[in-house]
Amino acid sequence: MADRQLTFEIFRYNPLKPEVAPYMQTYKLAETTGMTIFVALNMIREEQDPSLMFDFVCRAAICGSCAMVINGRPRLACKTLTNTLPAKIKLFPLPVFKLVGDLSVDTGTWFRYLSEKTESWVHTSKVPDPKIQEERMDNAVANQIYEAERCIECGCCIAGCATANIRDEFLGAAGINRVARFMVDPRDERSFGEYFEIVGSEEGAFGCMGLMACDDNCPMELPLQMQLAYVRRKMAAYGLGYKEKKRIKPA
């Protein structure tokens, strides 16, 4: 495996130089053991082309910066081993997000909008008292929150989503999952009516067409199908007049 010659076809375009039309550039590279796309891109930039633009920070699937379209699928470059791919590898930047240049996109602006729109913070009227112990949370609930909270905001679910590709205002799986996270959190005092304001429309739960490319392409393997269906059911129940109180917290 390690003697393969890899051929990379990489999308090149710099929005600051609009006079140069987008084109595909080919690079050749000898595969090494355990090589990831992230390693390969760094070698190409070090040895062949210092002008190549791409993002990375943690190289360990934590920061979500290096998401890109690898042979058609949104993937993390640092988590994708070249030995799982054919010798010809095509790389594109993620769609939907603002293109910075070549493979680099700005997911930050998009996710900041998402956080502001979904008001991604615990809404509470309580003033924390540093002198007393924190309130305890049921372990099952904590796990439910954590499961949704594992999202690293890489943008793969958004890039893979057909709706997000054509509807700018659609919050996508990342946004709906974010709301699901607060719905199960007993500390968040928002009512279902308030959640409905955020995701009870085609911008949120009812904009999803159920193609599940988010579920199939999430590098963190979040249970997005279940999260999306959960929010859809909760929002429909609220919209149809079913009054539901949030879980009463123990003690």
């Binding site: 058609g72 699928r73 594109f92 893979g160 057909a162 159920g210 193609l211 599940m212 392409n217």
Partner: peptide
Amino acid sequence: AKMLHHFDTWTW
């Protein structure tokens, strides 16, 4: 759809 090679997207 052509890019993604994704079954459920094609069926849609």
